[in-house]
Design a binder for these strands. Structure first.
Lengths: 134, 134
DNA sequence: AGTCTATCCGTACACTTGTAAGTATGTCAA
DNA sequence: TTGACATACTTACAAGTGTACGGATAGACT
């Protein structure tokens, strides 16, 4: 597997929307982006092209419009991005980031139980010795 | 407070070391970096200079050598960086990242309790904030 | 005193990134 | 059929980034 160049921040945002709304045209992504901020059509177009040329998406023409589809799963991109961040900003330690998220960003009450379950599950897995993951 | 330009990934790594080992010379940071990877002295020097010019550090000459000191607290940089990442990669949702960290990066057994305490504390705080029931 | 060495500062340079203008071309309404 | 759009593709360009060379200079060493 050839090493893909990493996505830039802006490209990531676009890639996320592509995962979110599935195969889409530039216009659809553009409209989605515009819900939260102003953006030029051509700029979004450029990002999609770059995302494709970096190997994270494919596209094909359907008549006159090009349809972009994500090629790499979110998981993969998230893993690489987060690993890198943790390496650089936390020296490779995961917990400080977890703490930061829990303490500094609002976690809603409804999510606390989910969190607790996660921790429980984690503990069971750990106890079962080197658990595998899918 | 004037908006500082964000630190780049590489600059972040250097800034972290600066927080970690406190006021330091280029040489000291360079040596620290070299523990984990090859790096050119002048490159580290450039990063420190840029970190300073972006307003995240100060420096003063002590005889022949320049001593760099962090000026912005880690918390601040971490908050801005993480907020941005969550916005772009998770559409502003915190939980998916928390889940990712817990599920995909090894959390050691010894840290699970710490995690559980965090969750408990979070819950207590939440209950106090929103009108209590009991 | 002269040479070596570490460090400073300035400069460079290709590559990436964010942002978009310009131009060509296909589509639909009048 | 012609003009107005929409969309594609090409090209641009300044700023940021990673990486480092080269000259100046102050201390250390011979």
């Amino acid at each position: 597997m050839v090493e893909k160049p990493a996505l830039s921040k802006s490209e990531m945002e676009i890639a996320r929307l592509l995962w979110e709304i599935g195969p889409a045209t530039v216009r659809e992504i553009h409209e989605e982006v515009c819900k939260s901020r102003q953006a030029d059509f051509a700029t979004i177009q450029t990002f999609l092209r770059r995302i494709e040329s970096k190997g994270y998406a494919t596209s094909k023409l359907k008549g006159r419009t090009r349809i972009y589809s994500a090629k790499t799963r979110p998981r993969t991109v998230i893993r690489e991005t987060v690993d890198d961040l943790i390496e650089r900003l936390f020296g490779g330690e995961t917990m400080p980031l977890v703490k930061h998220l829990i303490e500094e960003r609002g976690i809603e009450a409804s999510e606390i139980n989910e969190l607790r379950e996660l921790v429980d599950r984690l503990e069971r897995n750990n106890n079962q010795g080197a658990g595998n993951d899918s």
